[in-house]
Amino acid sequence: MSRQITAWLQAAPMALVMVGFLVAPIVMIVIVSFWGATEYSIYPAFQFDNYQFLFGSPVTYAVFLNTFKYAAITWALTLLIGFTVAYFLAFEVRTLKWQIALFLLCTIPFWTSNIIRMISWIPFLGRNGLANSTLISWGVIDEPLEWLLFSDFSVILAFVHLYTLFMVVPIFNSMMRIDRALIEAARDNGASAAQTLRHVIIPLCKPGIMIGTIFVTTLVMGDFITVRFMSGSQRANVGRLISNDISLLQYPSASATAVVLLCTVLIVIALLLRLVDIRKEL
C-alpha cells in the first residue's frame, strides 16, 4: 500500500465523524433556513422570507447588539478574574502539590449541573432573598434592590460565575509553561513586578488568553437558557430568538437566525485568530 493511501485511511475515521456530525448538520440547517413553514409543518422551498423577516426587523439588530454586549462584558470580567486566579496559582503558590489541590478546588462547583448553579442565584438575589435581607439588616439599603434579579446584572453575574473557569484553565496552562528563568532575568535586569507582568508574562500568556476568550465568547453568544432564567424572560439574546422559534415550531426561521449567528461567531473568531497565531504559540 502506498504511503498516500495509508495517510488517507488514517485520516478517514476522524474526517467521517466530522462530516457526519458537524458538516452534515450545518448543511441541513443552511438548507432548512430557506424553507417555508406553516403552523405545524415545514415544506421545502427556496425563498428568502426568513432572512428578509430577520433583517427587516429592528428587534433583530437590538438582540444582536445585546448578545455582543453580554459577550463583551462577560469576557472582560472573566478575563480579569481568570487571569488573577491563574496568576495566583502559577506564581504565588510555590509547591506543585498545593497548585494541584487549589486548582481542583476551583473545579469543584463544576461537578454540579450548570443549570443548578445558575438557578441557585434566583432565591439568593430575589426581592426577599438573602442578599437583600442581609443588606437591609446591615442598614446599607432601606428598600430591596430590584435590579439584583431578572436584570442584565443577574444575567452577567451568572455568565461570569459559569464561565470563569474556562478562562482560568488555559491561562494557568500557559503560565505553567513559562520558563521561570525568564522572570528571574527580568528581575535581574531591574524590571519592576508590573513591568515583568506587562512585558514578560502577558505576552507569553497570549495563547491561553486567546483560547479562553474563544471559549467564553462562543459560550455566551450561543447561550439561551441562562438569559431566559436569569432575566425572567425579560431580556433576549440571539439564542433565545432561536429557542423561541423552535418552541413555536418555526424551524426555518430558527435556522436562518442560527446561520446568521454562526457567521457572526465565525467572523469574531477569525478576527481573534488574526491577533494571535495559536498554532505557532502552542
Binding site: E39, V59, S233, L241
Partner: peptide, 19 residues
C-alpha cells in the same frame, strides 16, 4: 385559541419577548 393569523402573532410574540 389558535387564530388564522397565528404565524404572524407568533412572530410578534417573539419580538415582544426580545423588545
Amino acid at each position: 385559541s389558535v387564530m388564522e393569523e397565528n404565524q404572524y402573532m407568533v412572530r410578534k410574540w417573539n419580538e415582544f419577548l426580545a423588545a
